[in-house]
Design a protein around this nucleic acid. Structure first.
Length: 549
DNA sequence: CTGGGGAGGGGGCCC
DNA sequence: GGGGCCCCCTCCCCA
């Protein structure tokens, strides 16, 4: 009996121990789960805070817009900042952007913010500016929160919504505080960021689809919430700048509606240009004429009562109407030049433009009278591009920079890729790379050309004329460069050298073929390395090549 | 190697 | 003299 009781006591103690162990185990699990759960709660709370900040910013932004709408005023932006801040044209309209200062940010880079503006939503991208970088200059203005003073000087009112989402955002005065931000190589990849900005802006244009003229931001507010780096290019409030939109009444300009897939992003992207344009215009119907007119010669036709008979404009693609020219039709340049002049004129007729460009002299001319109707996203974006290029040109002019460092100033920039050229004709010719317009067609074959001289050269194929003859042999060439290249046969010149070995070649193609040998050998040896575990140091291309040869 | 197109730059001419 | 326009040259590339 006593034993039984002892046994029971032992069992009880054991069970107690087991129970305690089980409880401890359970408690441990609960604690772990609780910790995880608490962590999740903490994260959620952080997210909620961030979202609240965004919401607050957006609300304040709307308030700021309303405030700014009532005090629209022309703000002169230092030209030298335009090109930069406009980000090669892609920051324009970037009032949708916020500048997020490094160190103050609570958002992720490039974090989109969806804004409900009543007429639609838009995605905004936060531009991260490395405020502490050596290339960043802090500039302060009166009443300015130093934290808001990034490197982009816009000198405009209606400042940036401090991206830091600080509490002082709650006051309108803060919102209107002048913010000077100037981007100087602030971003490591400005183009990418700026392009994304353009994308979102153009998308917004499309999505809202409303009359943006009444949008004060378009008038005054520039990128980064700063006033209007590119605001002048907008026609808002300016009755005269008929300019680039003379064809907008065509009705079929763009039926993008709210479809972001028809975004001008594609259009803006040189690489995708043809596709993007096809989404906007029916090339097969010759709408390219309209496009190209709107780009190059906006308004000039209406104004002057002229009709540039774009008899045939051949565009890469199907059913290309062709602007037939023969070698005597090289007067195309006249119309080209006039068109471009008018195109520039149309830009300059915008009285909101503050410019010191020499082109500005044209401004005094009779304003172009066109049938520009209510705002149109397509036209607006086109004008956006056009003016940006022009403005960037001015920025380059005043900034002293040239696109490729040539001695001659390249004030005329391609609206698609911002490449600079010394004269408008060259820009127009260059832009055919993007537009695919080839106005010069051969009368004897289907070939079309973007440059008259190329057509002229091509026609030697038909005529058999070979004006370039070798002085050392009987060879004749239709290409001057072909002759030059041929003469390396006689001179023995081998200007193409292999970077991986000592071999030299007289023709580039030979070098390319040779390099393929290198590549092939390298791959071969890599394979051998895998199979034989060849030490890596034994496999430089040169050694490999030499050993194999 | 040659043929030939794409594209940019230079220079002359004209206004 | 300066700027715009136009043609030619040249380089690059591909077939």
């Amino acid at each position: 009996m006593a034993n039984c009781m002892v046994f029971n006591a032992q069992i009880a103690s054991i069970m107690e121990v087991l129970a305690n162990a089980a409880v401890a185990e359970i408690c441990k699990l609960v604690d772990d789960d609780y910790a995880v759960f608490r962590l999740e709660i903490t994260q959620s709370q952080k997210e909620n805070r961030a979202l609240r900040r965004k919401l607050q910013l957006l609300e304040l932004k709307v308030a700021r817009e309303r405030v700014c709408a009532s005090r629209l005023s022309s703000v002169k932006i230092p030209d030298r900042y335009r090109g930069m801040a406009r980000g090669e044209g892609h920051l324009t309209g970037g009032h949708r952007s916020f500048v997020k200062l490094a160190g103050h940010n609570t958002w992720r880079d490039d974090q989109p913010i969806t804004v409900d503006e009543g007429s639609g939503t838009s995605t905004q991208h936060i531009i991260m500016i490395e405020a502490a970088g050596p290339g960043v200059k802090q500039e302060r203005t009166e009443g300015e929160d130093p934290r808001h003073s990034t490197d982009i000087q816009t000198g405009a009112a209606a400042g940036v919504v401090p991206p830091v989402a600080t509490e002082e955002l709650s006051t309108a005065s803060t919102l209107q505080s002048r913010t000077r931000c100037s981007i100087k190589e602030a971003s490591r990849t400005p183009n990418a960021i700026l392009k994304s900005e353009t994308v979102t802006e153009t998308q917004r244009l499309l999505q809202t689809g409303s009359d943006h003229r009444s949008d004060p931001e378009r008038l005054e507010l520039g990128p980064l919430g700063c006033p209007a780096l590119g605001s002048e290019y907008l026609l808002d409030g300016n009755p005269s700048p008929n300019t680039v939109h003379s064809h907008r009444d065509s009705g079929d300009v763009l039926e993008t509606g709210n479809d972001p897939s028809c975004s001008y992003t594609t259009e803006m992207d040189p690489g995708n240009m043809p596709l993007g344009l096809e989404t906007q215009t029916d090339l097969s119907r010759g709408d390219w004429n309209r496009y190209s007119s709107s780009v190059y010669s906006e308004g000039c036709l209406d104004k002057k009562g002229e009709v540039i008979v774009v008899d045939k404009v051949k565009v890469e693609g199907d059913a290309p109407p062709t602007w037939n020219v023969d070698e005597t039709h090289l007067g195309e340049g006249h119309s080209q030049g006039r068109d471009f002049l008018d195109y520039r004129e149309s830009l300059e007729t915008n009285t909101n433009i503050t410019t010191h460009s020499p082109l500005h002299a044209i401004r005094d001319r009779e304003p172009v009278s066109t049938s520009m109707g209510p705002s149109d996203s397509h036209d607006r974006v086109l004008f956006h591009q056009v003016f940006n290029s022009n403005d960037r040109a001015r920025a380059q002019t005043h900034g002293g920079g040239t696109t490729s460092g040539n001695s001659k100033e390249k004030r005329f920039l391609c609206m698609f890729c911002s490449k600079g050229f010394s004269c408008p004709q060259k820009v127009e010719i260059h832009q055919r790379v993007h537009t695919g317009v080839k106005p010069f067609s051969c009368t004897q074959c289907h070939m079309c050309f973007a440059q008259a001289c190329n057509l002229k050269r091509h026609q030697r194929v038909h005529t058999g004329v070979k004006p370039f003859s070798c002085t050392q042999c009987h060879m004749r060439f239709s290409h001057s460069s072909s002759l030059k290249r041929h003469q390396t046969v006689h001179t023995g010149e081998k200007s193409y050298s292999c970077p991986q070995c000592e071999k030299r070649f007289s023709h580039q193609h030979q070098l390319k073929m040779h390099l393929k040998v290198h590549m092939g050998e390298r791959q071969f040896v890599c394979t051998q390395e895998v199979l034989r575990e060849v030490p890596p140091q034994d496999t430089p291309a040169e050694k490999t090549f030499h050993s194999m040869t």
